[in-house]
Write a protein that binds this DNA or RNA. Structure first.
Lengths: 267, 267
DNA sequence: CGTTGCGTTGAATAAGGTCAAATAGAGTGG
DNA sequence: CCACTCTATTTGACCTTATTCAACGCAACG
């Protein structure tokens, strides 16, 4: 965040694609034409390129060349849309929701910078989820056909992508565990710990952060009603585990919060 | 199952790898040496090769060459084991479970013939689940490094594998939906409909089948206690939706069962 | 023929959902 | 800057659902 980088020195190394650079270049356009650049992106440790060599990284720069800005509340894609691209979040925050036939909606995941969205569409060639921005956001567009093409030329990329998909599977299994076996307060504790860890991995404070989503959205994700979420927050606050002021969260007792998860055998 | 096939005519086309052939060849060994053969396997429409051309199929035969027999109750792999291979179920039935720190265990999925297990291990290079056979089973061993190698030479295979992974993600999201928003009877109805559909896709009766798992395992999968599962079964039977005799299930009123799912808005 | 594991059923209990009311902020227009 | 509105959140009272605890039935098996 605070580190500055040298400007490009060769044609291959385009100007560092920092946010500010693009904001001015495409203030009112939806699709930004200014080049994205994996090799200089500060997210490359958590994003798709994770683990790739410098050479492969440069090759990626040619693959990921468009960015798109999504305003808070807007959809990046919707269930049923034909699948063409994956999206790597450059900045901002998203939720993805499943829409059930009978009108029920459930939040399937929250996504933050560096995470890839859209992998649900590969199998059916249509998106199965709605992806909605919870704050003004920017994503890198990864045309899937190009990714597959590039993967066949770069073993490392193919492997990295397989890993990303696999991790998504494991992540979902963790959520299944949460939904299947945990009680309300355990779920919320798990949720906060998970957010904390992801913020930390991105260089933000793991102890203090803003929730981008409403209680209702948290509840939908955790399989709880918003009132239950609210009560659980209150209970945590009373127990001195966290301080809650609207969407501002501060974790006061991390070990205590961790004990909250899986506590029920200790009773 | 009942169809017979011609014996091999070229070195490339090895003997058809039907179950009976192997049983005698390796009665008491765990790892069968008799060749597996995707191109003649009757599961290739539901398994990994789904959508591949004849040429690519033959190429797969060289990739998938070992089989392994797992007795009922035994583990194919366990959480923590180093990840080396994927497994395609040739015959039999498995459950995969997540083991939580505090001793809680949850069934993450049930797997039947043609389904691929082990994809959870790609990201971490260790398995994250236990895979346990619920009946005597046979799996095809797919060495992952070989699969990646072959994928880089065959675009079709790479694409097919991406699709398999993606479908696994979507499947898990469906389970999350089930766990997050459905009531006990809805969950069980969904579960039965899902099994029914999968049996049908494999050429078995969609209306009558044997459950390979206990009520406890069903409950674990659905996020319910075994008593609740039992009560839901009883309720279905009383409502004339299904006939339940221990593990033998007959669906008597398919539309009614479907109405059961997502009924709660109709009330 | 008792043992063992699995399944069913009933009654009591607890957890979370529902409904309703009060409160707090954020944003808006005057 | 203030009043107003709208929405998100909190909290309480009550209700529904699933869990817990316990007893019993049934089938397979040695």
């Amino acid at each position: 965040m605070g580190t500055t980088r040298l400007a490009a020195v060769t044609p291959i190394h385009r100007a560092p694609a920092l946010h500010a650079a693009c904001v001015s270049a495409s203030a009112n356009t939806n699709v930004a034409k200014c080049p994205t650049n994996c090799s200089t992106c500060n997210l490359h440790e958590v994003c798709l390129p994770c683990g790739l060599s410098g050479l492969e990284l440069e090759r990626l720069d040619n693959l990921v060349y468009t960015r798109k800005r999504i305003k808070r509340g807007e959809s990046l894609y919707q269930a049923g849309d034909p699948f063409k691209s994956l999206y790597a979040i450059r900045s901002g925050f998203f939720k993805t929701c499943i829409l059930h036939d009978d009108g029920r909606e459930q939040v399937a995941a929250f996504h933050m910078a560096g995470e890839i969205m859209g992998m649900d569409g590969i199998g059916t060639e249509h998106h199965n989820l709605n992806a909605v921005a919870l704050e003004d956001s920017e994503v890198c567009v990864i045309v899937f056909a190009s990714l597959e093409q590039a993967s066949s030329e770069m073993r490392g990329l193919q492997h990295a992508f397989n890993k990303v998909m696999s991790r998504e599977i494991v992540r979902n299994q963790g959520v299944m565990m949460l939904l299947g076996t945990m009680r309300a307060e355990e779920r919320l504790a798990m949720f906060l710990l998970n957010l904390s860890q992801r913020f930390m991995a991105r260089g933000y404070s793991p102890l203090e952060f803003h929730l981008r989503m409403t209680r209702d959205e948290i509840g939908s994700y955790l399989g709880l009603k918003l009132e239950t979420v609210s009560r659980a927050f209150s209970s945590f606050q009373q127990g001195g585990l966290v301080s809650v002021q609207q969407k501002h969260i501060r974790i006061l007792d991390m070990p205590g919060l961790k004990r909250m998860v899986g506590q029920h055998l200790a009773n």
